[in-house]
């Protein structure tokens, strides 16, 4: 199998998986989705009737306006497949989801004042992806290095303490760690800001602004890192230790190759596809923690947006964030899979 063929197969498989996953999501949110669409239809029709009455300047009777309004509403609902067979309704509503036509939010506005759900999410999503990917990259890098070193000095202090660190850290709720960090680092010793993404008012100049942004990023990132790094290092250590007993490592040792070189070039190359798989699983597992850490730090990402929307009962936003996060997760898994293909020599060389 060439890498090209691998990519094509995987792309098709993931595309079909996307439709299947979203279908499951659709079934789960079906009642709320119909509720939201009906609400939107009512609101839009109300607006339509008002503007019609205003622009008609008395040339239309009340009954005519009402009739036009009813027609408008029926038209709106039929665009979402109401009064049509279920498969058509499903296809139409899925089409609206996939084209990011989520309608308007009940309360929440985007920073530019728009009440379109898609613009609200477009404003919040980059912050989540930024926090989440930075955190994951840090965890994967540091976790791999720690895991490799633990395996290198198997039985040593680091090696023996890693399982316990993994135990302890992976049972911590990320948002709670964030909470404690705020209590200590922000309110007790005043070292870091308690939340937000940038100071109010923001400093002038690009470089000070970037610095201020990093300053705000530190605590949420640290909370994410602390919770996830231990478990990841433990997994990597187990992978490496089991590889260290393989024949090719013995051969390399017999040839007199230095232990560090064996570890960082031979063993690492062998386990790197598995690391990619583990990283993908870690991404899937830590998404929940990442979006809740946003809540405690008031980091303006989709996690905070979801929390605020739950408080405000802003159903369109909740449905849309769920949908968007599903896509983000699937894209993350897809990238991981492609990376696996690059790293696994059996696939790459064909």
């Amino acid at each position: 199998m060439t890498y090209r063929r691998f990519v094509i197969t995987k792309t098709i498989s993931y595309a079909v998986a996307l439709v299947a996953t979203v279908s499951i999501l659709y079934v789960g949110i079906y009642p709320s989705l119909q509720h939201v669409i009906t609400n939107q239809a009512t609101v839009q029709t109300q607006q339509f009737i008002q503007s019609l009455a205003k622009n008609a300047h008395g040339s239309l009777t009340q009954a005519e306006i009402q009739r036009e309004g009813a027609a408008y509403k029926a038209n709106f609902l039929s665009a979402f497949g109401f009064s049509q067979p279920l498969p058509v309704k499903f296809a139409l509503q899925l089409y609206h989801l996939f084209t990011f036509q989520f309608g308007t939010s009940y309360f929440t506005l985007a920073p530019n004042g728009s009440n379109l759900v898609s613009s609200v999410i477009a404003a919040y999503l980059p912050n989540t992806i930024l926090l989440f990917t930075t955190g994951t990259i840090l965890v994967v890098l540091a976790g791999s290095v720690i895991g490799l070193l633990a395996a290198r000095y198997a039985g040593g202090k680091l090696d023996r303490s890693i399982p316990f660190i993994a135990v302890f850290h992976s049972s911590l709720p990320t948002w709670w760690v964030g909470f404690l960090f705020i209590a200590y680092f922000a309110y007790s010793v005043n070292l870091f800001p308690s939340g937000g993404i940038i100071s109010v008012p923001p400093p002038s100049g690009v470089i000070p602004q970037f610095g201020d942004f990093l300053y705000h990023l530190t605590l949420p990132l640290a909370a994410f890192f602390v919770v996830n790094v231990g478990g990841f290092a433990y997994v990597i250590r187990s992978l490496v230790v089991s590889t260290m007993s393989e024949d090719f490592v013995l051969t390399a040792r017999a040839r007199g190759i230095a232990e560090n070189r064996i570890l960082f070039s031979h063993v690492l190359r062998t386990v790197s596809p598995s690391i990619a798989t583990q990283a993908v699983l870690a991404v899937a597992g830590s998404l929940g923690g990442a979006i809740t850490v946003e809540v405690v730090f008031r980091w303006p990402g989709v996690g905070l947006l979801t929390y605020d929307s739950i408080l405000a009962n802003d159903l369109p936003i909740i449905i849309a964030t769920t949908f968007v996060l599903t896509i983000v997760l699937l894209v993350g898994l897809y990238i991981g899979e492609l990376l696996y293909g690059v790293l696994d020599p059996r696939i790459k060389s064909g």
Binding site: S13, Y14, A17, L18, A20, T21, I24, L25, G28, I29, S32, A284, L287, G288, I291, T292, T306, I310, I318, I319, T321, T322, L325, T326, V328, L329, L330, L333
Partner: peptide, 14 residues
Amino acid sequence: LVFLALPALPFLIA
């Protein structure tokens, strides 16, 4: 994979 890709937290909220 289809079930792995469902983000647990947001999905349960919805």
